[in-house]
Simulated scan of single mutants.
Amino acid sequence: MLKNDVFEQLKQAMRNKDTLTKGVLTLLKSQLDLAEKEKGDALTEVEESQIVNREIKQTQQALDGAKQANREDLIAQEEAKLVLLQSFLPEQLSVEDVKQLLVEAGVTSGMPMGEAMKIAKPLLAGKTDGKTMSAVVKEVIQA
């Protein structure tokens, strides 16, 4: 379970006095705890992946802002956070694998984007990020 992995790594980061890792893991653990409390039950792998993806997206936005501001110190910090967060995701599918899964699931050329995404989202949840999913769906329906 992801929450246990996060907690174990958090304890190790505390022992190592690694403040960056400790901060990221504390935030991630609190988000997982909050979601579990709101649900009133243990989270599924897909729900855990969605939380990690949300944190990755926020970190990516912070990284983009740091790049625009030319803040080298923040860029390095945000990139380190990104690598740490991505380590908690299951292995991400390649573009070719995503395309193959979509075609097998019935996404065809000329299909409306909304219908294709209704098929793609549950199929690819946690296996790829939303940006890649959207781009590959567009590619398949326009082929």
Score class of each variant (00 low, 15 high):
residue 53 N to W: 05
residue 139 E to N: 11
residue 2 L to V: 08
residue 2 L to T: 06
residue 29 K to N: 15
residue 28 L to F: 08
residue 101 L to A: 13
residue 84 L to Y: 01
residue 133 M to G: 06
residue 10 L to H: 04
residue 125 A to V: 03
residue 91 E to L: 07
residue 38 E to Y: 01
residue 115 E to Q: 15
residue 24 V to E: 03
residue 26 T to R: 06
residue 121 K to W: 00
residue 71 R to Q: 10
residue 103 V to S: 10
residue 88 F to T: 08
residue 143 A to P: 00
residue 72 E to Q: 13
residue 75 I to G: 01
residue 72 E to H: 03
residue 103 V to R: 15
residue 118 K to N: 13
residue 51 I to G: 04
residue 38 E to P: 00
residue 28 L to T: 04
residue 98 V to Q: 02
residue 45 E to I: 05
residue 36 E to M: 03
residue 122 P to K: 04
residue 126 G to F: 10
residue 66 A to H: 06
residue 56 I to V: 15
residue 87 S to Y: 02
residue 94 S to W: 02
residue 108 T to W: 00
residue 23 G to N: 11
residue 89 L to A: 04
residue 92 Q to Y: 00
residue 135 A to Q: 12
residue 7 F to I: 04
residue 105 A to I: 03
residue 65 G to R: 14
residue 91 E to M: 06
residue 23 G to I: 05
residue 30 S to F: 10
residue 54 R to I: 08
residue 50 Q to C: 03
residue 93 L to T: 06
residue 93 L to F: 05
residue 100 Q to V: 10
residue 4 N to R: 14
residue 108 T to A: 13
residue 81 K to Y: 00
residue 24 V to A: 12
residue 69 A to D: 15
residue 53 N to H: 10
residue 55 E to S: 09
residue 77 Q to H: 07
residue 27 L to M: 12
residue 94 S to H: 02
residue 124 L to T: 08
residue 64 D to C: 00
residue 29 K to Y: 15
residue 75 I to L: 01
residue 142 Q to E: 14
residue 141 I to Y: 01
residue 71 R to E: 09
residue 80 A to F: 02
residue 73 D to H: 03
residue 60 Q to D: 13
residue 83 V to S: 08
residue 34 L to E: 08
residue 90 P to S: 09
residue 115 E to V: 10
residue 134 S to C: 00
residue 45 E to C: 05
residue 8 E to K: 15
residue 112 P to M: 01
residue 2 L to A: 05
residue 50 Q to G: 10
residue 127 K to T: 03
residue 1 M to P: 11
residue 3 K to T: 14
residue 67 K to D: 07
residue 72 E to W: 05
residue 2 L to F: 04
residue 113 M to S: 08
residue 9 Q to E: 14
residue 48 E to M: 06
residue 46 V to D: 13
residue 57 K to Y: 11
residue 69 A to W: 08
residue 57 K to S: 09
residue 19 T to W: 10
residue 116 A to V: 01
residue 44 T to D: 07
residue 65 G to M: 12
residue 115 E to L: 10
residue 46 V to Y: 01
residue 7 F to D: 11
residue 10 L to V: 08
residue 12 Q to M: 12
residue 125 A to M: 04
residue 17 K to Q: 14
residue 93 L to M: 14
residue 135 A to M: 11
residue 142 Q to L: 11
residue 65 G to S: 12
residue 54 R to T: 14
residue 137 V to D: 07
residue 96 E to W: 03
residue 4 N to M: 11
residue 49 S to W: 13
residue 77 Q to R: 15
residue 31 Q to H: 12
residue 127 K to D: 02
residue 36 E to I: 05
residue 14 M to E: 09
residue 27 L to P: 00
residue 60 Q to L: 07
residue 6 V to W: 08
residue 77 Q to T: 02
residue 83 V to Q: 06
residue 85 L to S: 05
residue 86 Q to R: 14
residue 50 Q to R: 14
residue 46 V to C: 01
residue 59 T to A: 10
residue 143 A to K: 14
residue 52 V to F: 02
residue 31 Q to I: 04
residue 135 A to F: 03
residue 16 N to G: 05
residue 3 K to F: 06
residue 111 M to C: 09
residue 48 E to P: 04
residue 55 E to R: 11
residue 74 L to W: 08
residue 79 E to S: 09
